[in-house]
């Protein structure tokens, strides 16, 4: 379609007169569309995680299972730190500091993996030789909800790590410039979004409600 401008922000558009009317869109316009699309996707996903939170409050109410608080605090901190390193990576890309970007991206990926394995080992008990977790998905509503929530979140963590890796690889091939690095920005805000989700999941899983000690396991 033809070039576009929103009437709400028509004034801000004055500078981009060059080929704003050609049938092809400019990078700035495409960037706006991409950003809007990404945020709409976030809104949509918010309902996905919202549904899980709703299920948690519906089923557990004012109770919670006895999860290991130290593990909870550590994985939460790790994810928070990864958000910080992702911020550094994103800002570095903006300023063309590609070495900083590369290091920060790797730190983020590693912290993401640490978070992932933390959950897998200590909450899911996937490796009983290291740690014996007491929750299973099928014994009670507590296990079921913990696995549903952390599972859906872990799925997003994995895709986030994959995205960051792809962006690191593209940056290595010099595909981005300080002016044009939407891919980096997208993977960064995606990663922060995964963090935002955990910000709500952490109190919902670990802090809210009084502990119910499960019997017979």
């Amino acid at each position: 379609m033809a070039a576009s401008t929103t009437p709400m922000k028509a004034a801000g558009h004055a500078g981009a007169h060059d080929d704003a009317h050609a049938p092809t869109e400019t990078y700035a316009e495409r960037l706006r569309l991409n950003r809007l699309g990404m945020w709409l996707f976030f809104i949509s996903e918010a309902f996905l995680f919202g549904a899980l939170l709703a299920a948690r409050f519906y089923l557990w109410g004012d109770t919670r299972p006895d999860l290991d608080q130290v593990v909870g605090l550590i994985v939460t901190s790790v994810l928070l730190l990864s958000s910080a390193s992702m911020y550094i990576a994103d800002t570095a890309a903006e300023h063309g500091q590609w070495r900083v970007f590369s290091v920060a991206a790797w730190i983020t990926m590693i912290l993401g993996l640490v978070f992932l394995f933390g959950v897998m080992i200590f909450e899911w008990g996937l490796f009983p030789s290291i740690y014996k977790a007491h929750l299973t998905p099928w014994d009670s509503k507590y296990g079921a909800v913990v696995f549903a929530m952390t599972g859906m979140h872990a799925f997003h963590v994995i895709t986030g790590i994959a995205l960051i890796f792809i962006m690191w690889n593209l940056a290595r091939k010099r595909r981005f410039t300080p002016e044009r690095h939407w891919g980096v920005e997208a993977s960064a805000i995606y990663w922060h979004y995964v963090d935002v989700v955990w910000i709500f999941f952490y109190p919902a899983l670990y802090l809210i409600g009084s502990v119910v000690h499960l019997t017979g396991h």
Binding site: A55, P137, W138, D139, S140, K141, G143, A144, V145, A148
Partner: peptide
């Protein structure tokens, strides 16, 4: 719930 028996 059907496949794993997660009691939701």
């Amino acid at each position: 719930e059907r496949s794993l028996g997660m009691p939701i």
